[in-house]
């Protein structure tokens, strides 16, 4: 009887100054399974929750490599996410063709945001129903951006999108101040913790999440299941330990991770943007 008169197309304003179709598209992001991202001065980690539609199907891919130095995690309509990933990939490869160097993350994000904005201003279009966490490294350092269907974009130290992402955000908000100087492995652990928060009691296993890393001297790549499982086991050891022993356990855990991962747990070299401060 009293249906909303102002939400039948994207370009119609409500008297209150809102664009309902755009807001609905933003809702689509909240429906998708969670994706989180966090960064230090040298590394960015993306992680997502894998949900399959039925027992018989596999889950959909939620993290995409864009170029050697950039990757995205998506929440919302996966199909839209794939289309945007394809666009981002072609922008990156065209830039490398012309300049033989990687495209700056911030510039790519602006191009993506402009593309999304056009959809909010054309009567024959619909906004993209997907939110993207864009992680990357360039000459100004490590970056994490969030792009949303409205055409807005923001830079973050750490962020979470998708269903039940609020609990992950709460976790990240509590800990983000230490991320700047975190080691790569610690970032991954925090990412897994944040993912765990969104699961609400469900057991965290390597088959239910995807984790990807990009950083100094490390091209963007998705971690394999075995590696993730090893990280998860480390978390469980830490959680089971009594509170007063936590500090000691953490150190032991780090050593173990170093051995298991064949990577040194040393402090990573500073990012280009931080070198001036030393």
């Amino acid at each position: 009887m009293f249906r909303n008169q102002y939400d039948t197309d994207v370009t119609t304003w409500s008297p209150a100054g809102r664009l309902f179709q755009v807001e609905y598209a933003m809702e689509a992001v909240k429906q998708g399974s969670a994706a989180i991202g966090l960064r230090s001065k040298t590394h960015v980690v993306l992680a997502s929750v894998n949900k399959s539609n039925s027992e018989l199907s596999s889950h959909q891919k939620k993290i995409f490599k864009i170029d050697n130095h950039i990757g995205v995690a998506i929440a919302g309509l996966t199909a839209d996410g794939r289309v945007l990933s394809k666009y981002l990939r072609s922008e990156c490869i065209n830039y490398s063709f012309t300049y033989e160097s990687p495209l700056a993350v911030g510039r790519l994000v602006v191009q993506l945001a402009d593309k999304a904005q056009v959809c909010t201003q054309r009567s024959w279009k619909r906004p993209y129903g997907v939110g993207l966490l864009v992680a990357g490294l360039d000459e100004s350092g490590a970056h994490l951006y969030y792009n949303c269907p409205s055409g807005n974009y923001f830079e973050y130290q750490a962020f979470a999108i998708g269903s039940r992402s609020q609990s992950a955000k709460t976790y990240l908000e509590r800990k983000f101040e230490s991320f700047s100087n975190s080691s790569r492995d610690d970032l991954i652990k925090d990412a897994l913790f944040a993912i765990k928060e969104t699961l609400q009691g469900e057991k965290l296993t390597s088959s239910i999440c995807t984790v990807a890393v990009v950083g100094l001297e490390e091209d963007f790549h998705i971690l394999d299941q075995k590696t993730i499982q090893e990280f998860i086991e480390l978390l469980e050891i830490r959680e089971e330990a009594p509170v007063q022993e936590e500090a000691g356990q953490e150190e032991a855990g780090q050593e173990e991770a170093g051995a298991a991962m064949q990577e040194d747990a040393e402090v990573p070299p500073p990012a280009p943007m931080d070198i001036g401060d030393l």
Binding site: T98, Y99, E100, S101, A104, G106, R107, E139, S140, M273
Partner: peptide, 18 residues
């Protein structure tokens, strides 16, 4: 762009090659 990125000689050279 007014950011911390800028084209260096390598980028200029490659652009001119194209």
């Amino acid at each position: 762009w007014d950011d911390d990125n800028s084209l260096g000689p390598k980028e200029i050279h490659n652009y001119l090659t194209r």
